[in-house]
Simulated scan of single mutants.
Amino acid sequence: MGFLDIDNVTKSYGTVEVLHRVDISVGEGEFLVLVGPSGCGKSTLLNMIAGLEDITSGTISINGRVVNEVHPSRRNIAMVFQSYALYPNMTVGQNMTFGLEMHGVPKAERERALKDVAQLLQIGHLLDRKPGQLSGGQRQRVAMGRALVRDPDVFLFDEPLSNLDAKLRVDMRTEIKKLHHRLGRTTVYVTHDQIEALTLSTRIAVMNKGHVQQLGTPREIYDRPANTFVASFMGNPSMNLMPARIVVRDGAPHAQVTLDGASQKLLRLGQPALAAQDGREVILGLRPEAITDEGGADSSAQLVEQVDHVVSVVEPAGADTFAAFTVGGRDVVARLRANSQPRVGAQFPFRLNMDKAVVFDPRTEARIGD
């Protein structure tokens, strides 16, 4: 049993079920990120935890107490919204302490909490300003400060960085991670940005169409995706997914892929259990960083295959160079070193780290072989 338990929870609007039997247990001090495309149900689930949406069936418990019928103000949670939701006629200090005042917290205690949080967030010099006088990043700090002064059991974040520019998003992401390390409070964070999910979380719930597709650590989600949806959604660029056939040679499983025209290549696989799938059509998955140039190949890899192939696209990207080629009619993206020199229309010797390969069933789209 966790600190926050979401047990067999569903949500329906009329006859339409939008959340389907969600089961997630969040440990005390854990940072859970709910990630998925727009409309997948992640914000609905967060609002149900907060008490802003009713639960159709199932239970939600916080610190051992079922809160299905508990008013939001009595759940001891604090929520940071995408829109900041600051009162424009109040100063920063008043915005941050308004909730405490409504709960009857004595003035001396409110001022002490305000001072501590303002120092933590480095916004002490902004306390007398109005929200209209602040930048987007400063408003986000104030919204976080309003949550922090509450000293809640659970922090809820609903896409809090989506209104910020790219650099400020990275900076604020770092600040949120520092705060979590310092405070150690149970946190549920909603985002559609898979980089935020991977960098902030202790665990991730990847959602799609109201279902939790996979629940695991960032490393589990990235290296061992449960299905092709998780494989393609998590990672930038996403995992390469190539049609292949399992072929056994000398007792060892290989993935047979089609290169230019009808030419084929056998790529060794590191999962011995796949030998039982001889002749089966599969989808082979490899992250772009597992496809590189000779000097960039992982020296600790046990299974490295070379594929000489014509380059179709080259994209310099500062520290990396991305190059694309075609396997089985699908574009495959390789992450090469910046000083690599692939040329469009020319052959290039790509090195594939098959230790990192994963295999999926093309019918169910689920991972197989382990």
Rank of each mutant, 00 (worst) to 15 (best):
M1L: 09
R182P: 08
D223M: 07
S340P: 12
I195C: 06
A166C: 09
G41L: 04
N68D: 09
G318D: 04
L100G: 05
F98R: 07
M234S: 01
V230Y: 03
V9M: 10
S300W: 01
N208G: 01
G270N: 15
N163F: 04
E109I: 12
L100K: 14
F81W: 05
F157W: 01
N240F: 08
T56M: 09
G295T: 13
I77M: 06
P253L: 02
P349N: 04
G318V: 12
V105E: 01
F233I: 09
F229E: 04
Q306G: 03
P342D: 05
E365M: 10
D171V: 11
I49V: 15
Q347S: 13
P342T: 04
T15R: 13
A323V: 12
N89F: 11
P37I: 11
V358F: 04
T174G: 12
F155E: 11
V149Y: 00
A108V: 14
K177P: 11
F233A: 09
D320E: 13
R287M: 08
E315A: 11
D7V: 14
V188D: 03
I55A: 09
L286P: 13
A226W: 01
L200Y: 02
L183D: 10
G251K: 05
R330F: 10
D151Y: 00
T10V: 11
H103G: 01
C40K: 06
V304E: 02
E175M: 12
K11S: 07
D116G: 00
P243L: 05
G93H: 04
K130C: 00
K177N: 11
L215W: 00
L168A: 04
L267N: 12
N47Y: 02
H20Y: 07
A147T: 08
I62E: 04
I176L: 13
G261F: 03
R245Y: 08
K11F: 02
P218C: 04
V230R: 13
L114M: 08
